[in-house]
Design a protein around this nucleic acid. Structure first.
Lengths: 243, 243
DNA sequence: TGACATATATCCATCACGGATATAACTAAG
DNA sequence: CTTAGTTATATCCGTGATGGATATATGTCA
């Protein structure tokens, strides 16, 4: 039997019914705090609860394409860091049926996050509490306006936690913080973003030096405006070849 | 409508037919060379070609459980590092139907790799060439006995490449090299494993110091046997809490 | 014009790291 | 038994990265 003949007689319906989704952790730093976009569910299951934005992977669409499609439905696409995170597929994670989700995370600048949430009634920009190693597991979770932990739909709490861990892990060796800032930024703003991510203060001179000799940034010669003190120089992200 | 009523009327067959598999990159260092276990396919598609071991995820089985099941069918399970790697799901990656695979990688000591391949006729222990940055993309690939690159079935070449990248990336901050060695090992053997992974020689005194003050290893007081020179002390891996 | 807050530059102690060298210890040959 | 040979182990030093403190420059605002 040739491979062509084999495929001719192949019956896909022998497999149990499963579906594939993509869920997005849209992360940013607003007001010196890590935040994520949550969407209130208008339909069952988990109607009324908050979840990460997501959607089903189309029949002839790659997983990357699906992630980009869902992302562009929320935010304009330029200067966005989008990366596959982890795949969650426990049998009971969705009460409808077996649904495997390929979680991604995307990094957006603060203005984009605010703009996105401004426009849509069902979207919430929730701060992330990053459980500072207080006994037991260190888990990141979204917090509600009253300060309590916000229990997300499905297993999306685990996705948020995984996204924060990945973000922290990559911060030092990948140029990802720049996706969270406007095109031009001061070293102070860059440091504030880093501090929000690692959740501790950093030494200013060491941070300056370290950033400058990564080669990731270049001074523009321009100064920030609107400050009530000495304005700092504006820098831009200068990606190396291949990034 | 309550959530219970909603689920009552939910029809899973509205979704296109897809299937979920797990593929495993079983990696080790044999004879100072990075190697992976490949399996020759006995059935269509890609009949006769080599592929990574894998299988379908069961109906009521989590992805982790499936990965462990497939792994234990190949090798005994103790002291194995198994971790999810990346999810591949391009529409055309499998000619039968839409198949999403959650690739994992597992690290096995050399004796285990040899033992596994010894027992099975369809298994091949192939060295991995880790394209030393010679112009263009740096891609790892399996090599055949004649030294040529071995084109694997499906997109498994990409899985192998991703596994090697992950392995290299984690080597310095995660205790993964110990999964590639017997329970007791010398510092020289540990260094040989590291050198095979990063594909370059390392300075011996610096490597010693660095390993010792990671706190990951402890001397046993015993010495290696069988060497025709001064025997080195044997060390063991001492995992910290939570590993 | 001067107080003020921050940016920027400089200095110093510490420490990780690579490299080289010296010493110790075991095997094996004579 | 002695000695050459090979590797393990320990020590030393120069370099560069890092954290912390301090000093100076430069803008805004009263």
């Amino acid at each position: 039997m040739t491979e062509a003949e084999f495929l001719e007689g192949y019956d896909p319906n022998q497999f149990p019914q499963v579906a594939i989704t993509v869920d997005l952790a849209l992360i940013g730093v607003v007001d010196a705090k890590l935040c994520a976009i949550l969407q209130q569910r208008s339909e069952h299951p988990f109607k009324g609860a908050y979840a990460l934005p997501g959607g089903f992977v189309g029949e002839s669409e790659s997983i990357d394409e699906a992630a980009n499609r869902i992302l562009s439905a929320k935010a304009r696409l330029d200067r966005v860091w989008l990366e596959q995170l982890y795949t969650f597929g426990d049998p009971g994670r969705d009460p409808r049926m077996r649904i495997i989700t390929v979680a991604h995370y995307a990094l957006l600048p603060a203005d984009r996050l605010l703009e996105v949430c401004e426009g849509a009634d069902d979207l919430l920009l929730a701060p992330i509490r990053t459980g500072r190693s207080e006994e037991g597991e260190e888990r990141a979770c979204a917090i509600a306006s009253d300060g309590s932990a916000l229990k997300l739909a499905f297993d999306h709490d685990a996705i948020v936690d995984t996204a924060i861990s990945r973000l922290r892990g990559k911060l030092d060796y990948a140029p990802i913080a720049f996706s969270l800032l406007p095109r031009e930024f001061t070293l102070r703003e860059l440091q504030e973003v880093h501090e929000a991510i690692v959740d501790r203060t950093l030494a200013k001179p060491a941070f300056r030096r370290r950033m400058i000799d990564t080669g990731w940034i270049a001074p523009t010669g321009k100064l920030e405006t609107g400050a009530s003190f000495r304005p700092a120089e504006l820098y831009t992200f200068t990606p190396k070849a291949g990034e």
